[in-house]
Amino acid sequence: MNQQISYDVGKSQENRWVTRLTGMTKILVLLSLSIIGMVSYDTWYLIVLTVFAVLFYQSAHLKWHQVRGLLYAIAAFTALNLILVYLFNPAYGSQVYGSSHILIGRGFFALTWEELFYLLNMLLKYVFIVPLILAFLFTTNPSELAAGMSRIGFPYKISYAVELSLRYIPDVIRDFKQISLAQQARGLEMSKKAGLWNRLKRSTQILIPLVFSSMDKIEITTRAMKLRRFGTKQRRTWYMTQKLGKIDYLVLVSTGLLIAVGIGLFWVDGGRFYNPFK
């Protein structure tokens, strides 16, 4: 947990259009794009989505050192998955596209154009939304999220639970560090060489104080919130509710059009797949 969790939008991002988007817009864009991208296997469409996502990334002007670690992790994760997909069923692409054009090799591991194309689609599905999410991670004021969730129809109690979770993340990190160090002082060995059983045992020793202090925290916070009438009305308003700006409408309309196109493509392609081998 060495990574610092910062809640402040960076200086260089302050005046970007992606920063000015309201929380509600960001949630809607993220949800709708990631769901349509999950379902669609139309290669051209996924490429368009990727380009759309890159626009947000461009606007955020992120520094390489901010995203380097994450990009490496995503690359490793994606590569591992693609390799697994291939190893388990190298002929899967042929099954999907209903034809088989061998590129190289023979037998079980023969690499077909279909498989390669299928893997390209998988790759796109894994990465198309990454630029958008990176942009949002660094340009979103967390205070806007709960208000945004509530505005698009989440019950306010669930929205507030999310707000509270963001409120408590830094506290939990602090508590966790304290507890972990206090247990080390008691003699808990934290070496990386320990076996699985010992690792589980020692994490329990840290989690138990965390459970006790969290249960106390839940009790007191519940009281504090009741004393200020949380949950007494059917609806709730939000200080952080923002007016939608021109840029919000522009982004929402573009996203809406993209989604409509994505759905339309199911008919055009006669299913979720775009098949260039037909």
């Binding site: 809640y7 967390p142 205070s143 707000e163 509270l164 963001l166 409120r167 506290d171 925290k217 007191i220 916070t221 504090a224 919130m225 200020r228 009438r229 949380f230 949950g231 007494t232 009305k233 609806r235 709730r236 308003t237 939000w238 200080y239 952080m240 509710t241």
Partner: peptide, 24 residues
């Protein structure tokens, strides 16, 4: 710390009024 339920000072001050669904 337990009394502070908002993410920011402004939200915490507004908390009770938000719960009463007072207008913006």
């Amino acid at each position: 710390d337990a009394q502070f339920v908002g993410l920011t000072v402004a939200e915490d001050i507004a908390f009770a009024l938000e719960n009463d669904a007072k207008p913006d």
